[in-house]
Design a protein around this nucleic acid. Structure first.
Length: 500
RNA sequence: UCCUCCUUAGCUCAGUUGGUUAGAGCACCUGACUGUUAAUCAGGGUGUCCUAGGUUCAAGUCCUAGAGGAGGAGCCA
């Protein structure tokens, strides 16, 4: 019989019809004559309840005579063995009647005439119990944590967001670009890189100067994993007009926080004939689109995660609790993001209470200081109480490729700041003037010879263009209300941790 | 990389000023129960108190070092 997914079974009202469901047991409860099995197949966060009448299953599967009433008789040995092998984690194929549930917690349930055990799970060894586990414990069981409500919900939302992002850009006429994962450029300027080599690390060939000789390496030169697809995306945008990348990104920073991964996924749109204002519009539109998509398509999972967050924060003081998850998502949709310049932000921060009362760990003295997370959080969570886009940062604290303003002091950077997670997007209008770009690279000691291809786009038909980078896992953090980025990617890579 | 905290049963955790045989809830095992909703009821402790040294008559508890984990900061997305 053809399998029906549980999400469809739960929607069905064709009572009396035969169905087959397959899935993994979440809990089994039972009394002498009847057992209740909650079965989940990942198609939805909801379980289907399988109600096993011991006499009925005995009759249909093992030919136990209808007249049998003595439960201890040997006719029941097979039934008891079957039920004994059904535990949390066991994989089952269940065939039976779809019936309207007399219980209050579900509309339908399955009344089986046949149960096949597809894969057993010894309850003495299976680590997941029908109870709340700590996220730290589940991180160590990353191979099994998909089988929990929290992590299956996150997985489904992650998928929905991947799809929504592609749909958003496709509908707007963007082309998806596969930027390279192995790069020969060591000047992407976005952080420490992982080296890629096939050399025997015990016998590294050295040149006469004592430095490593990469000529015998696979590519004949030093290579790394990409830290950004932006530079390649710019090349594509200066031919295709509107492009985006969505790929893995690698940073070898020794960052030990709830917001950093060594391997993460990044979305980087790049648009020609576009200035920083268009760039901000695009960023705001995209964030609102995908949040709207999640609210429209991931309702059950978001409701579960909202409840989870609420339970988690029960012990916190009222003013330390976060906003209810779905309310928070709607809140982002309802208002325009605040757009202010770095200079205006400094003014606000200098006059703020925590700055005057020296509550900030880093006191804002004057223009030019880099903003710390405490300052960003103050602006977003206390002052404006909505997402903020900061623009026109001092050029000294930003990357070489950002377009320089006429004031000679600032660049057309824009950072989108969200509550709790801080910087979710970093972007800029790019410097399209060859002379200015080359001069800035020289000042920042970026070797021109390794970036000749990038510079050539400013020599041949250069146009104003802009783009940004969105950290995918930070988006998922925000959407799911989770507190640690290691819980929104299936197999997190962080310093000293590359399990699975 | 810096700062702070944590590590006791399968899981979550309690364990007082150092003092008999180290505890609870859940899980698990045994049994009871005619429809449960993280079922309930009765019984059962299943332990390298992270590791290695040290102090002490006596260490889960104090000291030193190490390992692992978490939170915050920096870097950033």
């Amino acid at each position: 019989m053809k399998r029906t997914e549980i999400k469809d079974v739960l929607k069905c009202d064709d009572f009396g019809s035969q169905v087959n469901v397959k899935g993994w047991v979440r809990t089994k409860r039972g009394s002498k004559n009847v057992s209740f099995i909650a079965l989940n197949d990942g198609s939805t966060i909801k379980n289907v309840q399988v109600v096993v009448d011991h006499l009925v299953i005995g009759k249909s599967m093992f030919g136990v005579p209808k007249s049998t009433k003595v439960l201890g008789s040997k006719d029941f040995a097979q039934i008891n063995e079957l039920l004994g092998n059904i535990n949390t984690g066991t994989a089952l194929s269940v065939t039976g009647d779809l019936v309207e549930s007399p219980g209050g917690h579900q509309k339908v349930e399955v009344y089986p005439t046949n149960i096949e055990i597809l894969g057993m799970a010894d309850p003495k060894d299976y680590p997941l119990q029908p109870k709340k586990h700590s996220l730290e414990f589940l991180r160590e069981k990353a191979h099994l944590r998909y089988r929990t409500n929290t992590f299956s919900a996150i997985a489904r939302i992650r998928h929905a967001m991947i799809f929504a992002i592609h749909k958003f850009f496709n509908d707007k006429g963007f082309y998806n670009i596969h930027s390279p994962i192995i790069t020969g450029s060591d000047a992407e300027g976005a952080g420490e890189m992982f080296q890629v080599t096939t050399m025997d690390l015990n016998q590294i060939p050295k040149g006469e100067d004592g430095n490593v000789n990469f000529q015998s390496d696979f590519f004949g030169k030093a290579t790394n994993l990409t830290v950004s697809g932006q530079l390649e995306a710019e090349l594509a945008a200066l031919a295709l007009s509107k492009v985006y990348t969505f790929g893995p990104t690698f940073r070898a920073e020794n960052s030990n926080t709830t917001r950093h991964l060594a391997e993460f996924w990044m979305i980087e749109p790049e648009v020609a004939f576009c200035d920083i204002n268009d760039d901000m519009d695009l960023a705001e539109d995209m964030l609102k689109y995908v949040i709207r998509y999640a609210l429209d398509n991931c309702k059950d999972d978001l409701e579960f995660l909202s409840k989870r967050l609420h339970d988690e924060e029960k012990n916190k003081k009222a003013d330390e609790r976060s906003m209810e998850l779905i309310e928070k998502l709607n809140f982002v949709l309802d208002d325009d993001f605040v757009r202010i310049t770095y200079t205006e932000a400094i003014q606000i921060l200098r006059n703020s209470k925590p700055n005057k009362k020296k509550r900030f760990q880093y006191i804002i003295e004057g223009w030019g200081a880099d903003l710390q997370s405490e300052h960003e959080r103050y602006l977003v969570e206390k002052h404006f109480k909505k997402p903020v886009i900061l623009t026109d940062y001092p050029r000294e604290i930003k990357a070489f490729y950002m377009k320089q303003n006429d004031d000679g002091k600032t660049v057309r950077a824009m950072d989108v700041l969200f509550p709790q997670i801080g910087e979710i997007i970093g972007g800029s209008q790019r410097e399209e003037d060859y002379e200015k770009l080359a001069k800035r690279m020289e000042e920042m000691e970026i070797p021109e010879e390794s970036m000749w291809w990038y510079l050539e786009t400013r020599k041949f038909g250069t146009v104003p263009h802009a783009g940004f980078g969105l950290g995918f896992e930070r988006l998922i953090l925000f959407l799911t209300g989770m507190g640690n980025i290691r819980d929104v990617i299936p197999f997190p890579r962080t310093p000293l941790n590359c399990e699975f």
